[in-house]
Design a binder for these strands. Structure first.
Lengths: 212, 212
DNA sequence: AACTGTGAATGCCTTCACAGCT
DNA sequence: AGCTGTGAAGGCATTCACAGTT
């Protein structure tokens, strides 16, 4: 596989979005698309789209713009370098919601096991995914060849869970807890902070309407 | 109120995090904190912390570093310029999870009404929040003086819901649907894209371990 | 001595603007 | 004529590095 020059986080985020959008468009029977059309759909600039696509080395093959099927395939080849089996820890409301939300749509990436300390939450099956006690996490991770973890436990347990995941040999973590966690080098961690997002909207919504 | 020079999105995000962290620390009895300690907690640099705090015009009052209570108060005064009543649209798994997750912790910002088209989901009360049919959204928004909206409907309905919210006079939107929505000028919209976040972790987790 | 506040430097990301292609 | 691919410019955000403060 041709080694593309290091893609930035922002670019990767947009590529995943392009892929989803392009799949929709393809299903609607569209075959080609221009950068300015794509830009319009996602409220971005044509130049940004062109540069992202340039970064992954796809070249439009005609005056018709990008060939949707080929472009999807190219994005796939860039993104799907990835391992695909995920563990989710914390089977509360949010954990369950993410489980069903995510496992419905996807195939290449899948949450294959869920974990919790609360006995009443284990041994169930949610969205095709069985629930286990945390104490057998490491064992399951090895057995099921899981390489990613999602943390949906309360803030005060998040670091503990991150440590357990790291110890189990996981390589990437997505953390929904309201606090950041520390992970060893070589392990990638990202965070979705719902509280921050809402507070941020509150702040800027207010600024914006004061401005006008 | 002193008009602070336009704060960036990134700065606001960090400020909300600082506030949460500082509240925790205060509850643990801590009174003062240095920038490098705060930095350590959230895996950031002391310089970043100092600049953020500088941006909101708070000045450390002694060699002991920042006074936690005063700093919290200062952050509050910056962030709480905001209106505080929120409507959530889409009472599926994710919507319900966010409702209970968010309404448990907060007081200044609150989800006060939830909406859905599905009759089986209405007239319930979740986390202290009553559920209504979408057709009465505008009326409720006015009655309850709601100024922010959270979208947790499937992608194909997201734009419709955004339009309804915009028409109802909402000023800010947080969109959890997997597609961006277009909103009129003067309305602030942000997005949390769970699918993108997971795919991104998958990508970088893999890159990182290939690197070493 | 050890911290903060901050101008200046750096680095990253986006946008411009235009040559080249069809 | 109208699009893409891309070097260069511009704009933001972070980090450096040090003067000022207690």
């Amino acid at each position: 596989m041709k080694k593309t020059e290091e893609l930035s986080e922002r670019t990767i985020e947009r590529l995943t979005l392009y892929r989803r959008l392009l799949s929709d468009l393809r299903e609607k029977g569209l075959e080609h698309i221009y950068s300015h059309q794509l830009a319009e759909f996602i409220s971005n600039t044509p130049a940004q789209i062109r540069r992202d696509i340039m970064m992954i080395g796809y070249v439009a093959n005609s005056k018709k713009g990008y060939t949707i099927t080929d472009l999807i395939e190219k994005i796939d080849s860039v993104l799907s370098c990835c391992d695909s089996r995920i563990a989710l820890v914390g089977i509360g409301n949010l954990g369950r919601a993410i489980l069903s939300y995510f496992n419905q749509q996807h195939s290449a990436l899948r949450i294959v096991a869920a974990f919790d300390n609360d006995e009443s939450r284990i041994n169930r099956v949610i969205a095709g995914c069985r629930c286990y006690p945390i104490r057998i996490l490491k064992e399951k991770v090895e057995e099921e060849k899981i390489s990613l973890g999602i943390i949906t436990v309360p803030g005060q347990s998040a670091q503990d869970v991150a440590d357990i995941l790291a110890d189990a040999g996981i390589r990437g973590i997505l953390n929904f807890a309201p606090v950041p966690v520390k992970v060893p080098d070589g392990l990638y961690a990202d965070r979705i902070d719902i509280t921050t997002a809402i507070e941020k909207v509150a702040y800027f919504a207010n600024c914006k309407s004061n401005k006008k």
